[in-house]
Design a protein around this nucleic acid. Structure first.
Length: 213
DNA sequence: AACTCGGGGCA
DNA sequence: TGCCCAGAGTT
């Protein structure tokens, strides 16, 4: 029974890997701090929106010191098109100040310190760990949450509990890719409202049936 | 657990 | 026009 479920999960993993062989993050910044800023900006908006503001943003403001000193209204204006811009601008500035004060201006490379930064929750922290430091990290966003429930990989709805469920059943070397697979899959097939079940390559392994939730 | 912040893209 | 987007903080 448990054995059978394990085989099912590995089959899901194999098909995702075959379907999306070279996934990679769209928030690809060399600089760890700029990646952190881009990731905070990415909350509840598309990577396209983020990528439309970051070039001009980082051409004006590059370092934590720059972000700490800029007038907040100016920062708000520069990130406005990513939505929730007042929150994000405030978080980013406080984040820069905290990095200067507590971490010598460097982005910490562990989940505890990252999640203690203003505006950085578990998802943002895991994105930074995976993309900036190459550490195995399971990012649980709305796609991963929705699809993990549909596939029967978790029964929880809390993102942190889902993360713990997933890291138990997915091999560590797949963690970074797994979240990206589900995000790609969630955009193309397993969409929130109208999942394309007839054309789904995982349909025979799916637990959601007609519920779609 | 529910509520708030939000402009942009797309059917 | 309606709905979704690699969320986080507050109450």
């Amino acid at each position: 029974m448990a054995r059978q479920n394990k085989n099912r999960i590995m089959e899901i993993r194999n098909r995702l890997k075959a379907k999306y062989p070279h996934v990679k993050t769209q928030l690809n910044h060399k600089n760890g701090f700029q990646l952190l800023v881009a990731t905070i900006l990415s909350a509840q908006c598309t990577d396209r929106q983020v990528n439309s503001v970051t070039p001009i943003l980082f051409s004006k403001l590059a370092t934590p010191e720059d972000f700490a000193a800029v007038p907040i209204e100016r920062l708000e204006a520069m990130v406005r098109s990513t939505g929730f811009y007042k929150n994000k601008a405030r978080h980013i500035q406080n984040c820069a100040r905290s990095l200067i004060e507590n971490f010598n201006g460097r982005v910490p490379d562990n989940i505890e310190d990252l999640t203690r930064l203003p505006g950085v929750g578990r998802k943002t922290a895991n994105v930074v760990l995976g993309s900036a430091f190459g550490v195995p990290a399971m990012v649980v966003d709305t796609h991963v949450t929705r699809i993990s429930k549909r596939l029967g990989l978790t029964k929880h709805k809390d993102a942190t509990k889902i993360e713990f469920d997933l890291v138990k059943i997915i091999p560590k070397e797949d963690w970074n890719d797994f979240s990206l697979w589900l995000i790609y899959f969630g955009r193309a097939v397993c969409k929130a409202r109208k999942p394309d079940c007839p054309n789904c390559f995982l349909e025979d392994l799916c637990k959601s049936g007609d519920k779609r939730e």
